[in-house]
Design a protein around this nucleic acid. Structure first.
Length: 165
DNA sequence: TAACATTCCGCGC
DNA sequence: GCGCGGAATGTTA
């Protein structure tokens, strides 16, 4: 994995690219750099340049409340089967729409797994591009967010969604 | 086994 | 209606 600093209007995000694509995205301020990540899975130089530009453009668009024109390929291979199912379901939630953790659980065929869905959302390695911020608690409340509730509210706000409390 | 980005129900204001 | 306690719940490290 290769960490890349992405300067945006909202601060410096850190993107980590594998040979397959964007594998992790961190909110600013960037947490500590990866402890000498294994370089076995490194992207080719050409891919890295293209994916970096695509990732930065996508972040800027999302922060501006516009739909991203293109996304970099995502490398979600690190997740468990359950997590990948959840993340896939999240990508099916349209901009400006929200679902509850329980609704997402129902979508993936595990109606009792609302809490586990929360866990999978928290484990989402690519926030913004995999829209975990569109998942709210059952009563329309904001729910939690790994990057901080402030980010969740900001992202929802840019999509015209207002959560209660 | 313990820890959760949940949810539901029952209670007392 | 709101807040709180408690229990059931699925997945993960």
């Amino acid at each position: 994995m290769i960490p890349v600093a992405l300067e945006t209007t909202a601060g410096v995000f850190t993107a980590h690219f594998s040979e397959l694509g964007l594998a992790r995205l961190e909110f600013p301020p960037a947490r500590r750099a990866l402890p000498a990540a294994r370089d076995a899975a490194k992207p080719r130089a050409g891919d890295l340049n293209r994916w970096t530009a695509q990732t930065r453009a996508a972040i800027e668009a999302i922060l501006d409340g516009r739909p991203p024109r293109v996304l970099p390929p995502l490398d979600l291979a690190a997740g468990t089967d359950f997590q990948r199912r959840v993340w896939s379901a999240l990508r099916g939630i349209a901009r400006g729409r929200t679902q509850s953790y329980a609704e997402v659980a129902a979508v993936i065929g595990r109606p009792r797994a609302a809490r586990a869905v929360g866990g999978a959302c928290g484990a989402n390695p690519v926030p913004l591009l995999v829209p975990c911020h569109r998942v709210l608690a059952a009563n329309g409340r904001i729910g939690g967010f790994s990057g901080g509730r402030g980010w969740k509210e900001r992202l929802l706000g840019s999509e015209g969604v207002r959560a209660s409390r």
